[in-house]
Amino acid sequence: MKPEFENISLIKNEEKKRFEIEIDGHFAFIDYRETGHQIALVHTEAEPELAGTGAASAVVEKTLHYIEGHQKKLLPFCPYVFAYIKKHPEWKRIVDEKFEGYDKL
């Protein structure tokens, strides 16, 4: 994660069902579904003003830390999150082994 994102807080916006970070009034976020011990990440997005800044990657990394810190298992349905974990295989440790694409990570 780029240093400029390290001190930005991750918000779990339960009303909108998304994890989000805010940079200069603009958001990068991941839509999620939570059931019991699992959190499914379904869609990652950064507002156009944040394109190319690394904000999407930062919100993914912060969300993975949140999931691990809350002892949940990840279901990475979002293609961006799935690709992030492939690129950073150390995060496979929090993916639920029952996830259909687990062996492709």
Rank of each mutant, 00 (worst) to 15 (best):
P3L: 13
P3H: 06
E4C: 09
F5H: 08
E6C: 07
N7E: 10
L10E: 00
L10F: 12
I11H: 12
I11E: 14
K12W: 10
K12V: 14
N13P: 12
E15R: 13
E15V: 15
E15N: 11
K17I: 09
K17R: 15
E20S: 13
E22C: 10
E22P: 00
I23D: 01
H26T: 00
F27N: 11
F27A: 07
A28K: 13
F29G: 12
I30P: 09
D31T: 14
D31W: 14
Y32M: 05
Y32S: 01
E34A: 09
H37A: 14
H37K: 14
Q38H: 15
Q38A: 14
A40C: 12
A40H: 07
L41I: 14
H43L: 13
T44D: 04
T44A: 06
E45P: 09
E47V: 03
E47I: 06
A51T: 10
G52N: 11
G52M: 14
G52E: 11
T53P: 03
A56V: 02
S57W: 03
A58V: 05
V59P: 01
V60T: 08
E61H: 00
K62E: 09
L64K: 00
L64T: 00
I67A: 06
I67C: 03
E68I: 02
E68Q: 09
H70P: 05
Q71H: 05
Q71S: 11
K72C: 06
K73Q: 10
L74F: 14
L75R: 02
F77S: 00
V81Y: 04
V81W: 05
F82D: 00
F82H: 01
Y84W: 11
Y84S: 03
I85S: 03
K86Q: 15
H88E: 03
K92V: 06
R93D: 05
V95K: 00
D96I: 04
K98T: 09
E100I: 13
E100P: 00
E100K: 02
G101E: 06
G101Y: 01
Y102T: 01
Y102A: 01
D103L: 11
L105F: 03
